[in-house]
């Protein structure tokens, strides 16, 4: 089942006790599902086992390799709730992921509330995944080794690139 993945900031969602049914904080809504031109950016993956594709798409366009939290919601959920989706080219250095970018468009107050509630449910169902910076580097490393991405296309610092290069040249011990 296809999913739409988006980066969020866990700390903002846990400002209130959403596990006990408290409302989502304003900070979570205004920061993590902040729209531009009533649009939210997401990345489409075919199922939860392909989460690394979303991680790759998100990380490859970033300036820093920072730990982030990722949620993913069913595409069906959006279609059933009459959300409008638009496939627009994504900002990623991984060419084969460019077309996996999906904008949720024509959002309004009510729809944003629905998205917020769905994300809160993800927390309750323990489906929010924290992706550490080591995991991000491993995902990038794998993409580089498979020639899906050139390290020089990444917008991260030279020192970070060196770290990834070193990982590429060094096979980890079996563990």
């Amino acid at each position: 089942m296809a999913l739409l993945a988006r980066r969020i900031d866990k700390a903002l969602w846990l400002q209130t006790d959403i596990f006990k049914g408290e409302d989502v904080s304003a900070d979570a809504i205004t920061n993590c599902i902040k729209t531009k031109k009533n649009t939210l950016s997401t990345w489409k993956i075919k199922d939860s086992s392909s989460i690394n594709e979303a991680i790759l798409a998100l990380a490859s366009g970033a300036n820093h390799i920072d730990t982030f939290d990722i949620i993913y919601l069913d595409v069906d959920f959006f279609e059933n709730k009459n959300f409008k989706l638009d496939f627009t080219p994504g900002m990623t250095s991984v060419k084969d992921l460019v077309e996996t970018h999906v904008d949720i468009i024509n959002l309004d107050y009510k729809k944003l509330g629905i998205i917020a509630s769905s994300i809160a449910e993800q927390f309750i169902n323990n489906k929010v995944r924290r992706v550490t910076n080591l995991e991000i580097r491993k995902v990038l490393k794998e993409a580089i080794e498979k020639n899906r991405l050139s390290i020089e296309d990444l917008k991260i610092s030279d020192a970070s690139k060196e770290k990834i290069k070193k990982m590429c040249h060094q096979a980890p011990s079996a563990s």
Binding site: I65, D66, L134, R137, S157, S160, K163, P172, S173
Partner: peptide
């Protein structure tokens, strides 16, 4: 949980890769 995750990561990086993320 996050602290434990980070501890595991750092241990892994220092032991396996002999390196850590010093600058991002």
């Amino acid at each position: 949980q996050y602290i434990n995750q980070v501890i595991e990561i750092l241990e892994e990086e220092l032991i396996i890769y002999g390196t850590t993320c010093t600058k991002n």
